[in-house]
């Protein structure tokens, strides 16, 4: 479903209540841009292990740097094309990044870094 500039994933066979005004439904898949789209962090997390390409597994140090909004050169990059990629930590997808072909920068909400102390990334 497209709502404004976003695309949402909604369960099949849902019958909407008639005449009901709603503020939102489903999981945001992506935000549409002029020529492309940016995948949503929560959608990539939902896809999780089913992502087999354009996913970069990072180390604790690399994740810490990404959350500090630093651009990094990850130790391991396989099957990645330039563009948006999933960032994975200990096999759990934590959100979206942008792989330039040489370096990775975080597209994860700044909120994550505020939520928990980075020293907990053990």
């Amino acid at each position: 479903m497209i709502e404004g500039k976003s695309v949402y994933l909604v369960s099949r066979n849902i019958s909407y209540p008639a005449g009901w005004k709603f503020e939102g439904i489903g999981l945001r898949v992506a935000r549409l841009t002029t020529n492309s789209f940016k995948p949503g962090n929560r959608f990539l997390q939902r896809l999780g292990k089913t992502i087999t390409r354009n996913i970069i597994e990072v180390t604790p140090g690399e994740l810490t740097a990404l959350l500090e909004r630093k651009e990094i050169v990850p130790g391991k990059v396989r099957n990645c094309e330039r563009g948006f990629v999933a960032i994975s930590y200990k096999t759990v997808v934590v959100g979206c990044g942008f792989w330039s072909g040489d370096s990775l920068r975080s597209q994860i909400s700044k909120g994550l870094a505020k939520i928990f102390p980075l020293e907990q990334l053990i």
Binding site: V10, I14, F22, E23, I25, G26, L27, Q45
Partner: peptide, 17 residues
């Protein structure tokens, strides 16, 4: 809304009545 997105529910509709 934030919790619905975080837990990735695709079968929840939000209204504000």
């Amino acid at each position: 809304q934030s919790n619905i997105q975080r837990l990735a529910a695709t079968n929840v509709l939000i209204s504000s009545y």
